[in-house]
């Protein structure tokens, strides 16, 4: 027959230890502030506008014929883009184009790298 002795007090002591641990855990968590990347930081970091704008400008130059006309004009315009990109957008931009006369296709290669985003595209269209 069990009596009131000191033997069972280790159960209550285990209970006490667990409770105190919970309190300490709560104090530690209360000291913390959740950090992480918010959605808008990630969106701002990806330079969607830079890539879309560069593509739109190269397509404008293509439609106006600059890429297929006077080579001095073409190289000065493309160098404008490269220089201004490096100075104002911190991005390396390289654009080149060529024509495949056998398959009647025109190609434009666009390279953009601003250290966080690296974009490469080969755009092709039929050479009428």
């Amino acid at each position: 027959m069990a009596r009131l002795t000191d033997e069972a007090q280790w159960i209550v002591m285990m209970g006490f230890i667990v409770s105190i641990t919970i309190f300490i855990l709560a104090i530690i968590i209360g000291e913390s502030a959740l950090i992480g990347k918010t959605t808008s930081e990630s969106v701002l970091e990806f330079s969607k506008a830079d890539v879309q704008d560069l593509r739109a400008e190269i397509m404008t130059l293509k439609d106006k014929g600059i890429l297929y006309g006077n080579p001095i004009d073409k190289s000065s315009v493309l160098e404008d883009i490269s220089n201004l990109s490096l100075q104002r957008r911190n991005a390396v931009v390289y654009v080149t184009n060529w024509t495949d006369k056998i398959e009647h296709m025109r190609y434009i290669y666009i390279h953009f790298n601003n250290g966080i985003t690296d974009y490469n595209e080969v755009y092709d269209e039929y050479d009428y």
């Binding site: 855990l25 709560a26 968590i29 959605t39 808008s40």
Partner: peptide, 20 residues
């Protein structure tokens, strides 16, 4: 206790991201 942190998930930040 393992669900301690679930109480701190808030939905208000999400709405602007979903709208975007």
């Amino acid at each position: 206790m393992s669900g301690l942190l679930i109480n701190f998930m808030s939905r208000t930040v999400d709405y602007d991201a979903v709208a975007y």
